[in-house]
Design a protein around this nucleic acid. Sequence first.
DNA 1: GCCTTTTATAGTCAAGATGACTCTTAAGGA
DNA 2: TCCTTAAGAGTCATCTTGACTATAAAAGGC
Lengths: 245, 245
Amino acid sequence: MTTPPRPDGYDPRAFEPFAVTVDLAVLTVRAGRLHVLLVQRGQEPYAGAWALPGGFVLPRESAGTAARRELAEETGLPEATVAGLHLEQLRTYTEPDRDPRMRVVSVAYTALVPDLPEPRGGGDAAEARWLPYDEVPALAFDHDVILADARTRVGAKLEYTCLATAFCPPEFTLGELREVYETVWGVPLDRPNFRRKVLTTPGFVEPVEGPPRRTGGRGKPAALYRAGEATALHPPLLRPEGRSA
Amino acid sequence: MTTPPRPDGYDPRAFEPFAVTVDLAVLTVRAGRLHVLLVQRGQEPYAGAWALPGGFVLPRESAGTAARRELAEETGLPEATVAGLHLEQLRTYTEPDRDPRMRVVSVAYTALVPDLPEPRGGGDAAEARWLPYDEVPALAFDHDVILADARTRVGAKLEYTCLATAFCPPEFTLGELREVYETVWGVPLDRPNFRRKVLTTPGFVEPVEGPPRRTGGRGKPAALYRAGEATALHPPLLRPEGRSA
DNA sequence: GCCTTTTATAGTCAAGATGACTCTTAAGGA
DNA sequence: TCCTTAAGAGTCATCTTGACTATAAAAGGC
């Protein structure tokens, strides 16, 4: 790192200050559709518009800490639950005019969560709600771009990581896991082939002991699995035809 | 995005300001070894220590623009060359105490470049130099972490993207391309298998017209190739045994 | 020139992984 | 009881890999 234009007698206030925020693209699969957690802004700019949850990074916290704090505030989830969630830095958005008030750079995070209860619009948000991904209206700031980037990233990561289990509850069936892939990728997968791939990948999932089985309504009851130790998928589970970018 | 603690009568100066910098992990393959572009700091903090090139983001530029500007300044490359380089946002580092002077968040970028001429230590750097990756001393700030993250990311991206060509000059032989993989991954690859994989992946490389062949010293002259249109590798070119993380 | 070394390029072959299917089992609902 | 739905077992051909062998074309030493 080099030094600022006039580094001698360094004075932080000599520079036009930047504000740093975090924005969260919190995704889940609910009823076979990809959903996003959105909040309705209570004040200007973009008052009344929907936006990704997020907020300012406090002076003594890291962006990751801020992200978890904001997520807990906006969803009303207990800290313990939020602490265990899969949170991943997506990208940082730095266009000079992305916020009309001042120079704000935003560190965006992606969170993959199981189907959670409806959020209570806490914090500064007028309202918080899960919206189906393809019914999301135009969002405040550059949040459309962030959300699109998050979706692309998640789709790609499903191919070569075990991340899909993050969308599932602690115990899940292979059918539920397959639904995650089908929903995020938007393509149907062959059931037996999917099953074979998941079960032969060491550490992807591990069976839950005992005879417990879950009947998901109709059909033969399915065995339950837990997420395994592995994080990467080798070889990967590639999407059918779509050559991903 | 929610609003700051006391958003009414918003005043940017009311918050302890953050500074925003960019840091660049510029990697190249030279003589079969991975090299990194480092600069020696001219002043405190960490005066005399080696660090990644980078610098402050100016008030009216994006981080990406700042990264290219700093890269041009520190390496002395013409703007046109820098404009064509593969620059990719790596991650943003936000630990509160990563800079002893003040709160600085840094957006890190990774650049993959062909074997470039020795840099002239321009800008604020006392000296700029290519250092072999495994001879890099302890770096200033958290740059060791950034550099390690960059290496991990690049290693992984070689598997499922066509990024390796970014390490090569405009025209290159398959031997040179293979050397990139072997150097970054640190494992030898089977020559015929590598060749088959690269040539059967549509759009990875395209042959250079005519009879031009390059003799790289000894051995049979090799045909020349150019980078193709493709960006992704489907299916990927996985590292031999190392199950990547 | 001749021989050795080095690297490119052409094949071969078996094992592994994948895609497309079929068939059976075990529930729920009409 | 019969039909529908989804789980789970298994088959088979094709595609991709990893491991190897063989040949071609240069440079260097003698």
